[in-house]
Design a protein around this nucleic acid. Sequence first.
RNA 1: GCGGCUAUAGUUCAGUGGCAGAACGCCGGUCUGUGGCACCGGAUGUCGUGGGUUCGACCCCCACUAGCCGCCCCA
Length: 432
Amino acid sequence: MSQIKAVRGTRDLLPPETELWNAIEATARGVFRRYGFGEIRTPIFEDTQLFARGVGEETDIVAKEMYTWEDRPRAQSEKAQMLTLRPENTAGVVRAYIEHKLGDTGLLQKLYYIGPQFRRERPQKGRYRQFFQIGAEVIGPVSAGSESPLRDAEILEMLATFLDELGVRGWTLELNSVGSAEDRPRYVEALREALTDVAPTLCVDCQRRAVTNPLRVLDCKVLEDQEKINALPKMADFLDEDSRAHFAAVLGALDACGVPYSVNPRLVRGLDYYTRTTFEFTHGGLGAQNALLGGGRYDGLSEAIGGPKAPGIGFAIGADRLVLTLQAAGSTVAGDAEGALLDVYVAPIGDAQQSDALVLARELRRAGLRVELGDGSFRLKKSFEVGNKIARSIVLFGEDEAKSGIVTVKDFKTGQQTKVARSELAGILRKT
RNA sequence: GCGGCUAUAGUUCAGUGGCAGAACGCCGGUCUGUGGCACCGGAUGUCGUGGGUUCGACCCCCACUAGCCGCCCCA
């Protein structure tokens, strides 16, 4: 019988690492709340069509990286439904926005999510098949201001605040405008045209991209081709007046609140739904997976999946990568050895003391202390060894202590041992 | 999906075609109501899985699986 293991690309998160995850999530919740976001939880699987139409049939995600299966029909007459484990969460949020007619409130919807996503890719450091994203979306009717460049700037400023609050140092914000739903196709067409002559001289990947996804050519890292790629038509020249003004307003607002950025005219994102502003926060030390988070505006997504006009902008943070970044930086956000220790280890001495020791532990726990209870059959030496590993202090609870109501407490750090009344124990432990 | 590297004790890693090793950790003792330090002793294990070559394979060969690194792509 072979050992059953976590499947390829999935893993268990164990303490104390989960402390760091909790700290990151708590920080995100705290920051997002201050910016007026509320939490949304969408299903982990959806109708396959949602992603096909929302994310784009031609994207790699939809074409080859989704976990898709045929659901069992309830009746012979019923057609089997195709279901997919969500590869990202924006499409699900927009689906919920449409389904619950959130636009009819007339208000801007600010929603954040935290949860697992699934893509069937080759695993690597910081890239898993079940991975975790923390994301947020601002979406609503135009009358609610959902198209305003202020929304873009606000989101970017919030992300900068989030990373700063987590203690992530040395991040880089790159952004670009890929144009409106009208000018993007015009640009792609021009690019495609220019590429008919140039493409055959480029790398094999770009020859393929020129046909399947011309924008991707801009992303090529082959050194010899950079000059030719730079000579291709520029997105900026195809932006209409509105898009140009929108982008300028975003940059102006970022300048106003002092968020550092660099415009990267060749920043292209992989999902079809992006329009106008796209962005990426990167961080060194992540290897090939240097993108920490990414996002952009998606003014046409709602309509693409059958909803009302509802412009929006959002982002997704790769939590797995954020954890790696913080670990590499020796972050003290959570999980330092000191903080992982319990407040006290209660050591009963002798089996007769066991149940009374549980009562003592209960008193301390109810007082808010973190307590582990030992075993009365342990030799005292062993109680000290275990206690020293997992707690800041130890309380001895033997026959004498049970009778007198005076317990012996020892602080592992100072080595100081004192006798205190059982009734005062919690108060004393809380102070030290 | 493609290419390269790797897989040995709980962990980090040595190792040789002929008895499976170290360090740390773990368990026990010196020490039956006192940990950390020290000393003494002990167990670590299907050498990733399955085949093959060989008198004999942890070692050589093949396949598979998984991890890491890069590519594709992406958070």
